[in-house]
C-alpha cells in the first residue's frame, strides 16, 4: 500500500507542481494565441495520423509475430521493440540515415522523384510512428496470444475464408487489445520529442508539435511553456475519456 501510494505520488507531485506554478491569468491569452493553436492542431494531426498508420501496419505485424515461433520470433520481437529502448534522439538519427536526402531509401527517393522527407510534417508523422508503434504491436500481439483459437476454428468450419475470419471474428475479438494499444501508441506519439526534433526539425506549423513548442517556450517564456503543457494535458485527458466511452461503453 505504502509503495503504491509512493508510486502514485511520483505521478501526482509533478502534476501538482505544474498546476501550482501555472500562471492562470495567462491561460486565456495562451489559448487564443495562434502559435498555440497551430502547435496543438499539428500535434493532434501528427499523433492521430501516426496512430492510424500504426494500426494499418502494426496489426498485420502483430499477426505475423503471434504466428511465428522459435528464433525467428525472438528476432522479430526484438526488432519491433527496439524503438522502445532506443533513445528517441538516436531513433531520429537512424531515421535520417534511412529516409534522409542522402539516406538508404531517402537518397533514391530524392534523386528519382525530388522527394525530401526531413523537415516535413510527413517526417514528424514517421518519427512518431517509429517511436509509438511498438506499444500497439505489443498490445495487439498479447491480445492475439490470449485469444481462444477455437473462435477462429469455428468460423472456418462455418465456411469463412481467412479474410472473413479476420474481419468478422479475430478483429472484433481483439478490439479491447487494439483499443488499449492504440491509446498507448497515441499517447506516446503525442509526447514524442527526441526523434521528431532530430528527424523532422522544428518549424512552427510544419514540424513544431506541442512538445517542441514547450521546449522552445521553456527557455524564452517559462510561464507560456507551463500553460502549453497544461493545455496538452487537458486535451489528452478529454480525448482519452471521450474515446473510452465511445469504444468500450460503460467501463
Amino acid at each position: 500500500m505504502a509503495l503504491a501510494a509512493a508510486g502514485l505520488l511520483l505521478f501526482l507531485l509533478p502534476l501538482a507542481g505544474l498546476i501550482a506554478r501555472a500562471p492562470w491569468n495567462q491561460v486565456g491569452t495562451e489559448l487564443v494565441a495562434t502559435e498555440t493553436a497551430t502547435a496543438l492542431g499539428l500535434s493532434l494531426f501528427c499523433s492521430l495520423t501516426a496512430t492510424a498508420v500504426a494500426l494499418v501496419l502494426g496489426i498485420p505485424l502483430a499477426l505475423v509475430l503471434s504466428r511465428t515461433t522459435g528464433t525467428l520470433r525472438g528476432v522479430l520481437r526484438a526488432l519491433t521493440t527496439l524503438p522502445m529502448v532506443l533513445p528517441p534522439v538516436v531513433g531520429g538519427v537512424a531515421l535520417l540515415l534511412a529516409f534522409g536526402r542522402s539516406g538508404l531509401i531517402g537518397s533514391p527517393l530524392h534523386q528519382l522523384f525530388g522527394l525530401q522527407i526531413p523537415f516535413t510534417t510527413t517526417a514528424a508523422v514517421i518519427a512518431e510512428t517509429f517511436v509509438a508503434m511498438p506499444f500497439l504491436v505489443i498490445a495487439v500481439e498479447g491480445g492475439l496470444r490470449s485469444l481462444d483459437s477455437r473462435y477462429e476454428e469455428s468460423a472456418r468450419a462455418l465456411g469463412a475464408n481467412s479474410w472473413k475470419v479476420f474481419a468478422r471474428v479475430t478483429l472484433p475479438l481483439l478490439r479491447p487489445a487494439i483499443f488499449s494499444g492504440a491509446v498507448l501508441c497515441w499517447a506516446r506519439a503525442l509526447g514524442e520529442f527526441g526523434a521528431t526534433i532530430t528527424f523532422a526539425g522544428n518549424l512552427p506549423g510544419r514540424t513544431q508539435t506541442i512538445p517542441l513548442a514547450v521546449y522552445v517556450a521553456l527557455e524564452t517564456r517559462p510561464d507560456g511553456a507551463i500553460v502549453l503543457s497544461l493545455i496538452l494535458l487537458a486535451v489528452s485527458l478529454a480525448i482519452l475519456i471521450g474515446l473510452r466511452d465511445r469504444w468500450l461503453g460503460a467501463p
Partner: peptide, 10 residues
C-alpha cells in the same frame, strides 16, 4: 527556413 534547430550544432 526548413527548420529552426534548438542548437547551433544541430
Amino acid at each position: 527556413p526548413a527548420s529552426l534547430e534548438l542548437q547551433v550544432t544541430a
